[in-house]
Amino acid sequence: MKITEAERDSFYKVLFSRRDVRREFLPTPISDDVLNRILLAAHHAPSVGFMQPWDFIVVSSEETKKSIKQGFQEANQQSAEMFESDRKEKYQTLKLEGIEEAPIGICLTCDRSRTGDVVLGRTIKPEMDLYSAVCAAQNLWLAARSENIGVGWVSILHDKVLRKSLNIPNNLEIIGYFCLGYVETFQETPDLERHGWQSRREVNNFIHFEKWQK
């Protein structure tokens, strides 16, 4: 199936306008049809040995969100203490999640035993199943953006909080917790760039030909 020029341009538009959303969420509900399309797209990510190691836990309960938010607040305070002086002060001004504002949360896990101990393509690099699950996260993010739905990845959380709040078995690896919702607007630049935390680096500085170059 050949991709048309218009379809190609649409893909790049989605890719370059993807944002990590924290503050612009609207209370507008996400319909089951839209959510199912997003999850189906995530499920069509590439996976080592075609093991499809992911599971998706969909969260809409306010009580559950409150529990996860409390865990974030504790981890966020702990994280703030790792920075020094001006960097710490700047960190504390940033909004780094939308757990309670977003209508839906999705926790993505990885079952490393899904197709047995020996997996095609994972024999030498056993971590490839984790990378596969991260591909599912990227698919989810891009599919959501194509639906004009914002996504925020909340990484400032201890796994034990999600295990307790979502009853996640210890044999599953937790990849991430994502906040999903329609937004007021998608920002032109990433939040951390816009608020002076970090700027985007020039891609040419990271491209090497034939061998690593300093």
Rank of each mutant, 00 (worst) to 15 (best):
F186S: 02
N148P: 05
C179L: 05
V154C: 06
N139M: 01
I175A: 04
D111H: 06
V161W: 01
E173A: 14
E173M: 11
F83Q: 09
Y91I: 06
W153Q: 01
G116T: 07
W153K: 02
L130F: 15
L108I: 14
L120T: 11
N148E: 15
W141M: 09
S165H: 01
C179S: 08
G150Q: 05
G181S: 07
D129F: 10
A144C: 06
E81W: 01
I149E: 02
G98W: 01
D86I: 01
Q187D: 15
E84R: 13
A80I: 10
P126A: 07
L157M: 03
E97T: 03
G98N: 00
S79R: 12
L172H: 12
T185R: 12
S85Y: 11
K88S: 10
R163F: 05
S113P: 00
W153P: 05
V134G: 10
I168Y: 05
G105N: 05
I168H: 00
T115A: 11
S113L: 09
L180K: 06
E81I: 01
V183A: 06
E81T: 11
G181H: 09
W153F: 04
T123P: 03
N170P: 01
A133E: 03
F178D: 04
Y177H: 00
F83N: 09
I174Y: 09
L94C: 04
D111I: 07
R112Q: 15
A136Y: 08
E100R: 00
S79H: 08
L108P: 03
F178S: 02
N167G: 07
